[in-house]
Every structure is written in structure tokens, then in C-alpha cells.
Amino acid sequence: MSRPAVAFVVGTRPEAIKLAPVAVLLGRSDWAKPNIISTGQHGATVAETLRGFGLEPDVELRPVRDLPCVGGLTSSLLHVLAAEFGHRRPELVVVQGDTSSALTGALAGFFAGIPVVHLEAGLRSRDITSPFPEEGNRKLIAQIAALHLAPTTTARDNLLAEGMDAASIVVTGNTVVDALQSSLGAAAPYNDGVLEAADRSGRPLVVVTAHRRENWGAPIGRIAAAAAMLARANPQLLVVVAAHMNPAVRATIEQPLRAVANVHLTGPMGYAPFARLLARARLIITDSGGVQEEAAALGVPVLVTRDTTERTESLDAGLSQLVGTREIDIVTAAGHLLAGDQAPAGRFDGANPYGDGRAAQRSVQACRWLLGKGERPHDLALTSLHH
């Protein structure tokens, strides 16, 4: 007999990274098979990321692209996903995080009467405008999900505080740790002579990324100016700017940095070489939630160029600090960290607040339990983790 399908809705590269370990393990099971639906949000980038885990999209949708507003994208995605679930009725719909693809995948599944599983449930910044629209998206998904796969006990507590049924929440850890461990084990080449030379010489690296919608425009310009100031003040460093795939975002951050000798602009990178780059960094400056989690798993200090973050576990563990987007705040905090004034110069010791690399295993077991085909997994006890 053919195995029933579990739909994975994937729109962006971060979703592909975090859903891939779950899809891989489910594909090895004897009770269900993954059906990977690419919504076309990040198109070829999603397909490339999935291939790094040995996966391919089963379905590639064609929503209306380049719409001028979030509402237009959301309505287009909902339309094509509703049609897909009407044509093929999976046993479950799995969505990850807080993107437009995640929200519309959850809504389309709910409208079709298909149980929705929310991977990375329960993250909250407690500011509905930041990140926008992600904070709203993830709160809406929580209202209709049948199963909440919370990455941490803090995320579980957020869901309980909002009235979610405790029986519907499983603490799994974050699958980004699974993905990171798998990718680092592959030892992928950079295909970048500057980065390969820096690895051979042991030159210290600072990695900078920026892409958040609320930082578009002047805030990203200030982040770029701070990176330039930091590079000029520390000529021994190589400041690596791994820019976003959005060309407008990339132009804003790259333009002020082109004339700085010890700044290297990589453009978008594949996930495996990017993981290798993060593991080499002395310091990371980012507005990315996923990078905050990856840095914690690697023990690399992070300056978060936002005013709020839903990754509070990193803050509580002393692995990251919020600095906003003012140049002087970024440069001052970076200087202290690089000098060892505020944190260890090397890697951090202690528990990884985002899990043990077995989040995908717990997630697959939880899906099986939801369908009445297996036992409920034990919640991850993060306090028992050690590097």
C-alpha cells in the first residue's frame, strides 16, 4: 500500500532549511511520505537549498509574483494552495515559522479540514509591528494549528499564556540545529577564493547580514555604515557581508562598503557554505532570527540589529545582545566583544538553548502521534543539554 502524504509548505530559504530535516526523516519512515510544496516565494533558491539535503519539491506552484504589498502576495498564495489541497488531500499540512507561505499554508489546510502542524511555534516578540508581518502571522497560525511544535520551553510557555491546549504542544528543540550539524558535516566548499584564503590563514572574520523588512532603507544603510567603521578601525579583520537575495536590500547594504579594503561582499550563499562561514566567525552582526539560533549552536557571539527579538533564549544565555541600528551602538558593542571586554573571546560553554540536534526526530514522532499511529514523544528537557 502507498504511504499517505504529509504536505510540507515551503516558500523561503529559512523554511527549506528548517523543514528539510523533518522531511528527510519522514521520507525514511514506513507510515507516511513527505509531499514538498514550493510556493514560489524564493523559487530557485528554495530548490537549491532542498537539494543540499537530498530533497526536491514535489509540487511547484505559480502564484502571482512581484505584487506590491504583503496582502497581494498572501491572497495569491492562499488561492493556489487552496486549489492544491483541493486536488490532493494530504493527511497533514506542516508549516514552519511565520512567513506568508506559512500563514497561507495553514489557512488553506484549515479551510480544507486538514490538521495543521506548526513547526517552530510559540515565538513572540510581543510587538505586533516588529517583525512585520511575521509576529502577526505566527500568532494567527497558533489559533488554527492542531499541533504546536515548540522549539523551546519559552515558546511553549508563550503558547500556554495565549490559551493553547497543553496537550497540543510538544517541545522539540529547533530543527535549525539538526540542519546545521548536517551541513557542517558535509564540509562544503565556499567556491570563493577570498574566503578560502581567510580559512587557510586563520584571519579573524566578522559576518554581517541584514534583511528584515522593518530595517529596509535607512536602518540597513546605518548597519552598512557601522560595518565600514568597524572594518576601517580593525584592518586585521575580514568583514564578510553575506547579503540577502533581494536586490534592493543587497544594493542598500553593499554600496557604502565597496571601497573598504577589508570588506568582502559575497552576495547570497548556499546554506552549507554559509554554515561553514558562521562557524569560522569571531562575531556575527545580524537581524536574522535563524542566524541567532545558528550562532548559539556554534557558540559565536551575536549583535542583533533590532530593537526586539523573539529569540530571547540567546539573550538570557548571554549569547546575543540587542543593539538596534545606530552606528555608534553597533561599533561600540562590536569593539567590546572583539576585545573580550564583555564576553569570552572564544566559544561559549554550556547548554545550547535551541536543542540537541534531534528536533526532527521528535517532530516526526509527534506527527505520527497526532494521526493516532504512534506514541507521543517526550518533550525536550533543555536543561539537560551540554556541549
Score class of each variant (00 low, 15 high):
Val6Gln: 00
Val9His: 11
Val9Tyr: 13
Val10Gly: 11
Pro14Ile: 05
Pro14Trp: 00
Glu15Gly: 07
Ala16Asn: 08
Lys18Cys: 04
Val22Arg: 05
Ile37Asp: 07
Ser38Glu: 11
Gln41Gly: 08
Gly43His: 11
Gly43Leu: 15
Arg51Ala: 15
Arg51Pro: 04
Phe53Gly: 00
Gly54Ala: 13
Pro57Leu: 05
Asp58Phe: 00
Asp66Thr: 13
Gly72Ser: 14
Ser76Met: 10
Ala83Pro: 00
Phe85Trp: 13
Gly86Ala: 00
Arg88Ala: 12
Glu91Trp: 12
Val95Ser: 00
Gln96Pro: 07
Gly97Met: 06
Thr104Leu: 12
Gly105Thr: 07
Gly109Trp: 09
Pro115Gly: 05
Pro115Arg: 03
Val116Asp: 07
Val117Glu: 04
Leu119Val: 15
Arg124His: 13
Pro133Lys: 01
Glu134Phe: 06
Lys139Asp: 03
Ile141Asn: 09
Ile144Gly: 11
Ala146Cys: 11
Ala150Gln: 12
Thr153Ile: 01
Met164Arg: 15
Val170Tyr: 01
Val170Leu: 10
Val171Lys: 08
Val171Pro: 01
Asn174Val: 09
Ala179Asp: 00
Leu180Ser: 03
Leu184Ile: 04
Ala187Ile: 08
Pro189Leu: 13
Asn191Met: 10
Gly193Glu: 15
Asp199Thr: 14
Ser201Lys: 09
Pro204Glu: 11
Val206Glu: 14
Val207Arg: 04
Ala210Pro: 12
His211Gly: 05
His211Trp: 01
His211Ile: 02
Arg212Gly: 05
Arg212Glu: 07
Glu214Pro: 07
Glu214Ile: 12
Pro219Arg: 05
Gly221His: 02
Ile223Pro: 02
Ala224Tyr: 06
Met229Tyr: 01
Ala233Leu: 15
Pro235Asp: 10
Gln236Gly: 07
Asn246Gln: 09
Ala251Thr: 13
Leu257Cys: 03
Asn262Met: 07
Leu265Arg: 06
Thr266Lys: 02
Gly270Cys: 04
Tyr271Val: 01
Tyr271Thr: 06
Ala272Gly: 00
Phe274Gly: 08
Leu278Asn: 01
Ala279Pro: 06
Arg280Ala: 09
Ile284Ala: 03
Gly289Phe: 14
Gln292Leu: 08
Ala296Phe: 08
Leu298Val: 00
Gly299Asn: 07
Gly299Val: 02
Gly299Thr: 09
Val300Cys: 12
Val300Ser: 11
Thr305Gly: 08
Thr305Gln: 09
Arg306Glu: 05
Glu310Asn: 06
Glu310Ala: 06
Leu315His: 05
Ser320Phe: 01
Ser320Val: 05
Gln321Pro: 01
Leu322Tyr: 05
Ile328Asp: 14
Asp341Tyr: 14
Gln342Ala: 15
Phe348Ala: 15
Asp349Gln: 14
Asp356Ala: 09
Gly357Ser: 11
Arg358Thr: 15
Ala359Ile: 10
Ala359Ser: 09
Ala366Leu: 12
Trp369Asp: 02
Trp369Met: 10
Leu370Thr: 03
Ala381Trp: 11
Thr383Gln: 02
Ser384Leu: 12
His387Ser: 10
